[in-house]
Design a protein around this nucleic acid. Structure first.
Lengths: 343, 343
DNA sequence: CTGAAAGCGCTTACAG
DNA sequence: CTGAAAGCGCTTACAG
């Protein structure tokens, strides 16, 4: 069933059918419109999106590249993006790069070949893949992991402020040996969170002690290993800012193994918290990104086309739970914490 | 840059360019081939996937509908599907239904309109949406949550066997008050896991006690609430088969709140375990689906086209960790458990 | 082994 | 307000 069938049934031309379908593009008399609509119903016509894309030059499709969908953070991001995109009739092509730069490039090339209207790039390592897309004239938004010298438009979390807030909260609990478990040292995200941690300590008049500092992969295994190392011997921190949810979950596991009580012996606040932080043992106090806002701004930039280089920075919310030492579950009255937004 | 540009640069016809691109479709002399390849390089030609799709009638795209990507189980499944699809140059359109039947239907309609070559449907509730796709002549595979009277082809986990194995393992630890925390009672998946639990108890000569049985949503909150209910008062089980990873994580949280030691007071074995089970507190013994195999069989069915109704059943592996009472981390020597596959 | 051309199902100037 | 027709960039019989 094609537009030609509808046109025949309605006694009009295919042009009119098209104009009725894409209403607003040209005025159509109510009578004709009715006839066409009835004919569409009658013959059971469904528009062919591929033909439409070829003729119009727009696929209404965006490419999404994420490092690993099985990571709760990226999955939550992908879900928010899909929801936001669907509000505008946009659909996402899913690309999981498995943390491989080669695969990223392949994915971007595939997406370009498939004529996506834009690219959401949540990348690892150097962003060579982005060039492929921009060279093809595609609007690109680098989401979350922007490079220091990012040349594409980007939407990022306020890493410094988030880390500072979390660390301040730990200091507010009277902790003084406040360590940090950070991500890979070569990632801008990691360094920014390191800065936030340092800022809070400095502002609080507490000297930063590198014996309480570790750089580890952004994974549960990474957090677990670093946790065993950090808590297993030598001088031990009494609080820890952990730079990702996965690392924090690994750390909690390590603490349990070592018999370190959280929050009794060790207060913990993490970053990038999703639903998974809510029912960990103990539930994690975390800097929760506003996934909806990240998604909204990303899609908005792409819809506007050709976004200018520069970072849009999204605030986050400190979600207070048990791991920092706050009362949990919270009492009926509002707790005196910066935010108790539980979404 | 189009095939016409390449043809001009190579001094051939566009047909030859096409045949070179789709090698094997027709013999092309080595010399011509070389000329064309050079011309492609020269003008920087990239094939237009949309035009190809329109002319060939195939988009090399599959639609994927999942209930909620932020759920680790579905995200892991999606990741495996994407990896498998990409082996064949297939790309996935991502659809998150947010557990809504209405939205599912919309997604399937969108995917049909976009001329996907097949549909992977991980659905909730009644599968009306599937009819939309099959009516349009699309190959469909219902993945994981097949209905009892499923009319489409399906790929499912062996729920009865998995639940039985997990429950037997708990009995093997000498537990006798072995309860079950199951999913919604109206889901075939839940009922199958209930059957497996019953089977194991019967085979072990242990009477099933409904006071240790709960049906709850497949969520952390659901597992948490049911856990508080089950462990908070009255007769308390000394072991629990939990029907999903999310529920198990919620249960562990509830046990910790109530001061119930796992595995000391309560041995736990769950189902649908992903990476998240490995670093929970304590690490969860779980029936781990073979995600790669689920993905492989699903994509194979779709590639073959028009799959016949009927279920393909995939085995799972019992991954033994701490929550059941087994030694953890496992000693160097192999432990006497059914499987220690840690992937 | 190669070329000229129809056709995939739409959109959108161009003419009326 | 409407129609006839070109064109989007490919694939693939049809003819040679």
């Amino acid at each position: 069933m094609t537009q030609a069938d509808v046109a025949r049934a309605a006694g009009t031309s295919t042009a009119v059918v098209s104009y009725v379908l894409n209403e607003g593009s040209r005025p159509i008399s109510a009578a004709t419109r009715e006839k066409v609509l009835r004919a569409i119903e009658e013959v059971g016509y469904r528009p062919n999106g591929v033909a439409r894309a070829l003729a119009s030059g727009s696929t209404r499709t965006l490419g999404l590249v994420v490092p690993e969908l099985a990571n709760q953070f990226f999955a939550t991001l992908a879900q928010a993006l899909e929801a936001e995109a669907s509000r505008y009739g946009l659909v996402l092509l899913l690309g999981d790069s498995a943390e491989s730069v080669t695969r990223e490039r392949e994915l971007v090339e595939t997406f370009v070949a498939r004529q996506v209207d834009g690219l959401v790039y949540v990348g690892v390592g150097p962003h060579d893949a982005v060039q492929v897309a921009t060279a093809a004239g595609l609007p690109v938004v680098v989401l979350d992991r922007a490079a220091d010298d990012e040349r594409a438009a980007s939407v990022v979390i306020d890493n410094v402020a988030g880390a500072r807030t979390a660390t301040e909260h730990l200091l507010g609990h009277g902790r003084r040996r406040v360590g940090a478990l950070l991500g890979p040292a070569d990632l801008p995200t990691s360094r920014a969170r390191h800065t936030g941690w340092l800022d809070a300590l400095t502002a609080g008049g507490v000297p930063a002690d590198d014996r309480y500092l570790r750089w580890a992969p952004f994974t549960r295994a990474g957090g677990h290993r670093a946790g065993l190392d950090l808590l297993g011997s030598g001088p031990v921190p009494d609080a820890l800012f952990v730079a990702s949810e996965d690392q924090a979950l690994g750390l909690l596991c390590a603490a349990a193994e070592l018999g370190v009580a959280v929050p009794g012996d060790l207060a913990v606040a993490s970053f990038d918290g999703t639903e998974a932080s809510r029912f960990s043992v103990p539930p994690l106090t975390t800097v929760a990104p506003r996934f909806d806002e990240l998604a909204r701004r990303t899609i908005d930039l792409l819809r506007a086309g050709a976004p200018a280089p520069g970072a849009e920075i999204c605030a986050s919310d400190l979600v207070v739970r048990a791991s920092c030492g706050c009362p949990w579950p919270p009492p009926a009255a509002p707790v005196p914490a910066p935010s108790t937004d539980e979404r």
